[in-house]
Design a protein around this nucleic acid. Structure first.
Lengths: 258, 258
DNA sequence: AAGCGTTGTTCCACATAATGGAACTGCGTT
DNA sequence: AACGCAGTTCCATTATGTGGAACAACGCTT
């Protein structure tokens, strides 16, 4: 009963996009060939088609980068996203209350994708993180979101994670994560205690559509040297309240049917 | 000698993405079917594949929206873009000098895609416009960029434009645009005199890679009621200087070969 | 509440488009 | 100048997408 049939031709094209994205810089033909193992003829045609569609861009030195059309698609995806729109005022309020960086993220497979961000120091480019994907198992938003999944679904996902210890405090086994998620599910909020990046911790709370087809979370993030664990814990009610308000706004605005 | 072969399967998948993007809001199956004319079976499979790849997302009410993975691709595309990176300090400087909104855009076919923006009033969401596509023929950046194309290429593009008079001042014929572009090419800068949106005008200057495989521009935009045409003209040297500095930085940093 | 029209889903014989090995081109290197 | 490798083109084979039609699910009307 294997249901996950391949996406055929499309999957191969997306694999090319993904390889370029993972590289994080322009890649040459040969590097791509090694990364995804497509024979030269096939890869060449894929790139050629992607370029015609504006999804890939060739530099004059025969290196390839992601195309500008992806920006346009993302711009629309972002602007027309209801969850983000509904959450926005609550992010601002939470930021006003804490004066620290507030994130909104959504769970996509095993990753959290950040949909929005409000940060104290506007000097840093605001959109630098929008769209960024991070592992769910070592981020506050990610753990809060995972904890909201139905038990069966949660277990499947947890068991397919490839753990990497980003810091000494990273939860690095399925068993530990499972235990942590149960705790988070019970108390309704999560911490990231320097699990992704040393010196950065956060408090997070889950948000979700009523049918949980969409799960995500919000968080308040701060450097450990400036904000104590105690302070973080004192913010939990604020974070939880914001999350609850978002949840209820979602339930109201997207209808009980959703 | 028709060279523009179709992109086959990929093209049809992208047509679906494009239709959803154009709608600017979640669309239902039937609407998509009408928009792109794919038979139900085909459309259903395309959507199914796009969803498996995370490029499309289904709402519980059977409407489809662009997927979160597009945000991630765009995030990488934006962060790893050298032109944007090189231009950034010059945008900031131009903003400092004028205290008005500064744009960086790149020409993609017949459209300008905005890569960056620095605006005076930070109250408005900064990334609201990043990735946005606008017609080239009625924007300052677009006209400046078109004017930099080799004559033959420019004429081909101008002749394939479908003009729409957004305002009474919009240039709406290929002949008028051609004349305007020649003028712009000679003097080295462009204005948008309320041609896209009544009450908004701007001064722009072209930027380009040395081989002109990439053309774009920067602009200073302001509402007419607050900034006079005279003021705009006085800013032209600043805009031109910033553009020239970007051009020379590009030439240096991306190498004479590029 | 039943029936009907609309909307979305599945299936399968067929046609088309993708595949990839191999031969080729051209650029950079010694 | 000749070598080697990155990148490109070609084409017979094969896998994949195609779309009509039959089917299922939903919601709206009577």
């Amino acid at each position: 009963m294997e249901e996950s049939a391949s996406t055929g031709t499309l999957g191969k094209a997306v694999a090319v996009l993904d390889a370029i994205a993972r590289a994080g810089k322009p890649v040459r033909f040969r590097d791509l060939r090694d990364l995804i193992g497509q024979p030269p003829g096939t890869l060449h045609r894929n790139l050629s088609n992607l370029m015609k569609e504006g999804l890939v861009r060739a530099n004059p030195d025969n290196s390839y980068a992601l195309g500008y059309r992806l920006l346009t698609f993302a711009s629309v995806a972002w602007a027309s996203n209801r969850f983000r729109e509904i959450a926005e005022p609550h992010l601002r309020e939470l930021h006003r209350q804490t004066d620290e960086t507030v994130h909104l993220g959504v769970l996509e497979g095993l990753e959290v994708i950040y949909l929005d961000k409000v940060e104290s120091r506007q000097a840093v480019r605001m959109h630098s993180q929008i769209g960024k994907a991070s592992p769910a198992y070592c981020t506050g938003v990610g753990k809060a979101a995972l904890a909201m999944l139905p038990e069966e679904e949660r277990r499947i996902r947890v068991n397919s994670i490839h753990f990497h210890a980003f810091t000494p405090k990273t939860i690095a086994t399925a068993m530990d994560l499972e235990a942590e998620l149960i705790t988070i599910g019970q108390r309704g909020f999560a911490f990231d205690d320097e699990e992704h990046e040393t010196g950065i911790h956060c408090a997070a709370a889950p948000i979700h559509s009523t049918d949980r087809s969409f799960v995500g979370g919000i968080s308040v993030t701060a450097p450990s040297y400036r904000v104590s664990r105690d302070q973080l814990e004192q913010w939990v009610p604020l974070v939880s309240r914001a999350a609850n308000e978002i949840n209820s706004d979602i339930a109201i605005q997207l209808g009980p049917r959703v």
